[in-house]
Amino acid sequence: MDLLTNYILHQADNALILGHRNSEWTGHGPILEQDIAISNIALDLIGQARNFYQFAAYRLNELSPSEKITEDDLAYLRDEHEFKNFVLVEQPNGDWANTILRQFYFSSYQLLLFRELSNSPYPELAAICEKSIKEIRYHVKWSSEWVIRLGDGTEESHGRMLNAMQNLNPWIAELFQPVDFDYEADETEAGILPEILKDEWYQRVNRILETATLPTISSEKKSMQLLSGKKGVHSEYLEPLLAEMQVLQRTYPGSQW
């Protein structure tokens, strides 16, 4: 698989895995209205995933016309080490604090990235990103408000937010660490190197954390990142997620659904 296609799959996998996680809340949310809100976000993300997978499939089929790969082949028939999503998005939902913080970290990143990619000379990539920006802005808004509500709500919610930060902060560094397909994207100008987003991301995120009376995070602290979702080295959580998601396609290979 060529590097640019991997760059696209990385975007697709992020959206699919996070959309899948959010959809796990359906029917179990803290109040009906928020059940609907998080399902909406899940739908937005799955929609983005589909666009990226379809584009990736198109590229692959151009390169090997005999294949006829579909979006579903990419989502349902790749193994765990072939998925290129961030370790952050495969983390389990945990409680509401954990879920909305995960969303906040990811969407803040996605907004900055897609803002750049909307100017990509690859028209399909630019189109998908531009189309998605409006909904991503909403994801950022929605999750920021929850970070603030829970950070500055009750003692209990504040404590849970601190917990969530402990769980998720270790996975932030990966957002800005380039791998081979990032370098390729940057070289061909199809995309950018993620480190250019780093300062602005920390600024924006810390602004909200401060308002939420939560501790800010330092971009300086470097912890050893032994996992790299982008390289296919995931946490233990991805395998069971995929086993569940892919079960029917794996059990009945070659079937139409």
Partner: peptide, 25 residues
């Protein structure tokens, strides 16, 4: 939802269940 066997089925099932929440509301 987590086992829906295609992306299209996944999306439409989420939308349907979400509609039901809306109807309850």
């Amino acid at each position: 939802i987590t086992r829906a066997p295609s992306l299209r089925r996944k999306a439409t099932l989420i939308a349907k269940v979400q509609d039901e929440a809306g109807h309850g509301l």
